[in-house]
Simulated assay, not measured.
Amino acid sequence: MDLTNYRTLGKSGLRVSPLTLGTMTFGEEWGWGSTVQESKEILKAYLDQGGNIVDTANLYTKGHSEKIIGDYLHENQVRRDGVVLSTKFYGNLYPGDPNAGGTSRKTIINSLENSLRRLQTDYIDLYWMHAFDEFTPIEETMSALNDLVVSGKVRYIAVSDTPAWKVAQAQTIAQFRGWSPFISLQSEYSLLERTPEGELIPMAQELGLGVMPWSPLKGGILTGKYTKESNGASLSGRLGNPDLPESTYVIIERLKILSEQKGTTVSAIALAWVMAMPVVTSTLIGARTIDQLNQNLASLSVALSDEEVGYLNEVSEPVLNFPIPFMRAGYHNGMGGTTINGKTSLISSILPKNSKEVY
């Protein structure tokens, strides 16, 4: 597989690469990240290899990430329609102004106009609600986004870091009103963060949203450079506490074993696991250097067998909230469940064993 193995995103005809270039590292305004020149080299390398989707946000490096992308596309006369530009609204770049962040109509329109200016384009291909705003009715947000799609300034809309129940509400309202729905979901997802399997991912499957995981290497922890012997001593910066639990080192050790067997890197195996999940459409990768980008792209040549996926799954099984444990207990205890489509159904499993028809 390579970056030109395009797939459609959710219930749409938008074709995207299996790896999406995330650009939160573009710019040094946050105290870490790539210089402008390094950022442009990373962007060039990704696009030259057939990658077609670049993800950013108005908030990233205080707007500089968007500007770097816009400058590169303009300076190199890159055909605009050949690139899927993905950016987000919600983040507040003007502290003290309550209307500069969130998901209100005013905020969305202002954020879009500023993003268009920095990206030097007249439309956004994929516009994301970056997070859940509890103070704005979702109907207002979806109405404003639909207006932007109708106007041609936005092609598709998507949602990130929002509870499953709120996304479902938004999709239902959009369907009822005849508005443009979300086509994709961004959520943190990796061998160290599998809780989306409880609600978010099943919701995305049911509603037809393409899943685009972020932080598939858990901020660099799954790159293999942190060992039990060092107790994560080299962890620093935005990751905070360097102490890692024993369970994390168990996963890292299994990744290392598989990487040695396959002659690749730990990070390539960790990324390959995410890409192997059938719900995943495109995985977000970030890189501060060309070397890091190439290490991430190496995952495209890694194919994990069902046995190898299971080998990693058994040490990374998430602890999910109710009702998932209850449902799984019903499956595993053999409470008279019925097999449907190859799976045990709880249609009868939740009944007492001595239940029988009375009437």
Rank of each mutant, 00 (worst) to 15 (best):
Q169G: 00
S143T: 11
W214A: 01
A204E: 03
A233E: 15
G334V: 08
M277F: 11
W128I: 04
A233W: 00
R194W: 08
L239H: 11
E193W: 12
T227C: 05
R117T: 11
T23I: 03
V309I: 15
L207T: 10
K218D: 12
R79K: 10
Y123E: 01
G219Q: 14
G82Q: 15
G82S: 15
L116R: 06
V149L: 10
L3D: 05
G152C: 02
G13E: 14
W165K: 12
N321K: 15
K62T: 04
L284S: 06
L320M: 02
K166W: 07
S115E: 07
N114G: 10
I124V: 15
E253W: 00
R238W: 14
P98H: 05
L320G: 06
R118L: 13
S305V: 04
P245W: 03
Q37F: 00
P163L: 10
R117P: 00
L284D: 08
I257Y: 01
A144Y: 04
E307N: 07
N296S: 13
E41V: 00
G210I: 02
F176R: 12
F135N: 14
E139F: 06
P163K: 07
N92M: 07
I157V: 14
V211M: 14
R118I: 02
A268W: 06
E75M: 12
E206V: 10
N99H: 13
T4P: 09
D122H: 09
T20P: 02
